[in-house]
Amino acid sequence: MNVAIIKYNAGNIYSVDYALKRLGVTATVTSDPTLLRQADKVIFPGVGEAGTTMQHLRETGLDLLIPSLKQPVLGICLGMQLLCNHSEEGNVDCLGIFDTEVKQFIAQRHEDKIPHMGWNTISDLKSELFTAEQLDKFVYFVHSYYVPVNAHTVATTDYIQPFSAALCKDNFYATQFHPEKSGSVGEAILSNFLKL
């Protein structure tokens, strides 16, 4: 299978590559539009800041390429947030696949620490990205911004309030958590994506 990982200025792209290797898949890490269009699956990972990353995507033309992809695309963490309409982080317009906003977590009590960092459970699973096996299982999150529950939500997690742990629309899939860092549960989700 031909899997491409979108290369851009965000950090920790290689941990997705390593996770795929553990599943026996060798991916191409690239920003080449032809290679991205030809891939059977595309992964859009990312750790970073939305404003500067969107600027980078615009400068490289990836802002037009990514929404035009027809094969299954998986956005991870910042990758998921950038597939939404707009982010409060850097107050920036994003790629507009998912018709929803990205908001900043606001603590309601002193104990609400931000970023939401660590292992939390996923519920209300509604996509072929998941099987019943993953219901209420723990996955790894690190984020200060979140996507509210909306029409595209296919998994929810509760932190301060329920938010979107995963989104899906047409060929676009996305997780707020890091499947590549979520042990065997994460590996199962990545392998579900590869089977789409």
């Binding site: 290689y14 390593y18 996770a19 553990r22 890091h178 860092k181 042990g183 065997s184 590996e187």
Partner: peptide, 8 residues
């Protein structure tokens, strides 16, 4: 470590 271990 990064290549072999699937937790942060």
């Amino acid at each position: 470590v990064a290549a072999n271990i699937s937790i942060p």
